[in-house]
Design a protein around this nucleic acid. Structure first.
Length: 104
DNA sequence: CGTCTGACGATGC
DNA sequence: GGCATCGCCAGAC
């Protein structure tokens, strides 16, 4: 298995495996890649996420949505709601119900 | 090769 | 629960 030095590419590959209706935190993804401290880069990778990468399913650990730099104000939330994701009154994603546990 | 940076995370108040 | 600070790591210059 050729391990791509591009940490970003690894992130994209992992994010693409997040099923609809579920959300994962940056730290969770970074942890799966073996870089539990690289959560910042996971988000940075999302910023340049190509098509096919549901970056809208990636949120903060608390369930708060990241800044809408690519999608637009309220767009990310709309996408998640369209997948069946529920939001709390504070605008956070209900991680308790939609927290992704990885592949499986 | 050195420095700065950044869609984070944990801790402290 | 919200805000401020430190720490961490990989990429861009």
């Amino acid at each position: 298995m050729k391990q791509d030095s591009g940490f970003f590419k690894q992130v994209y590959h992992l994010v693409r495996q997040i099923p609809a209706g579920r959300v994962a935190s940056y730290g969770q993804l970074a942890l799966c890649l073996g870089r539990p401290r690289a959560a910042r880069f996971v988000g940075f990778a999302m910023r340049g996420a190509p098509e096919g990468v549901p970056s809208h399913r990636v949120v903060r650990k608390s369930g708060e949505l990241p800044p809408d730099v690519v999608f637009g104000a309220g767009v990310q939330r709309a996408l998640l709601e369209g997948e069946g994701v529920t939001f709390l009154q504070n605008g956070y994603v209900d991680m308790k119900k939609h927290a992704w546990h990885g592949v499986g």
